[in-house]
């Protein structure tokens, strides 16, 4: 459990980091290291170079305004979770982050790192997808913004080019009249969820105008399903509607049938909670 040899660079400017990435095809970015370092230790990944971005200035901030929450590449999960302002602007962040692994991992792991690791069993990629957020990336070729809908290419695969560094993620604010909720079932506290479900319910007065659900661990990539029609239809079944677009699978911890069952159990709960949240307004 020792990594294969690699070169190590700890640049002090973003330009230097981007140049290093551009110049080394086998280079990988190291931020919190909570996924990458175990992969290195088990020799499941053997990059020729690690570009450690922890010394880069200006990437550690969590900034909030009326439009949403912007999370810098070096902001740790724990810092985002602890931000009262972030929780006010977009309550789903804290709801989901409290389920991300354990405190020691959240102290080190970065939210942006989790997004570009693109694990469909992780909470934050789904949250970005559900909220319709985006990730700003930089390279020697310049900057661009990747909307969440275009970020996840496949299992553990993002659409970032090899020489790009994700510098910031943007999570839109909760709109007026909207509510969110999140629940997951895991084998042990802090484990990857067997199934996790988030709901974003938008209302206009007593009218539910739009309902979307985000899912963890029941697909290869983060999946968001619009269940507005199923919710508005008194005979509708939002969970069944969602399952039609999910691909729960067997693994060593649970069968596909059990995961599908948990979707059916969790969907009504998070829908009810998010609807309550919407009706309580932002003070909830």
């Amino acid at each position: 459990m020792k990594p294969a040899p690699f070169a190590y660079l700890r640049p002090s400017t973003l330009e230097e980091a981007l140049a290093a990435l551009a110049g080394e095809q086998g280079a990988k970015v190291l931020a919190g290291g909570q996924s990458l370092v175990p992969l290195l230790s088990m020799r499941l990944a053997a990059p020729s170079m690690l570009v450690d971005i922890n010394a880069l200035p200006g990437l550690g901030d969590v900034t909030c305004d009326a439009s949403g929450v912007r999370v810098g590449a070096l902001a740790r999960h724990a810092e985002v979770l602890a931000s009262v302002a972030a929780a006010e602007v977009q309550p789903l962040l804290a709801m989901a982050l409290s389920h991300v692994a354990h405190p020691t991992i959240r102290n080190r792991g970065t939210t942006v790192g989790s997004l570009v690791h693109a694990d469909a069993a992780a909470e934050m990629p789904m949250v970005l997808q559900l909220l319709g957020g985006s990730v700003d990336v930089a390279s020697v070729r310049g900057r661009r913004t990747i909307p969440a809908a275009e970020l996840f290419a496949g299992p553990l695969e993002s659409t970032l080019a090899h020489d790009e560094i994700a510098v910031e993620a943007s999570f839109p604010a909760l709109p007026a009249g909207a509510g969110v909720a999140f629940q997951e079932i895991a084998r042990r506290h802090g484990d990857y969820a067997l199934v996790g479900v988030a709901a974003l319910v938008e209302t206009d007065g007593d009218d539910v105008t739009r309902v979307r659900l985000g899912f963890v661990s029941v697909s290869d990539v983060p999946v968001v399903v619009d269940v507005t029609d199923a919710v508005r239809d008194p005979a509708g079944d939002p969970a069944a509607r969602a399952l039609a677009e999910l691909e729960p699978a067997d693994d060593i911890h649970a069968t596909a049938a059990y995961r599908a069952h948990l979707v059916k159990v969790l969907v009504p709960k998070v829908l009810a909670a998010a609807t309550d949240h919407a009706r309580q307004g932002k003070d909830a």
């Binding site: 069968t255 049938a257 059990y258």
Partner: peptide, 11 residues
């Protein structure tokens, strides 16, 4: 026994 297995037994 796991929850998944208990669920299967219930069925």
């Amino acid at each position: 026994i796991s929850p998944s297995e208990l669920f299967a037994l219930r069925l």
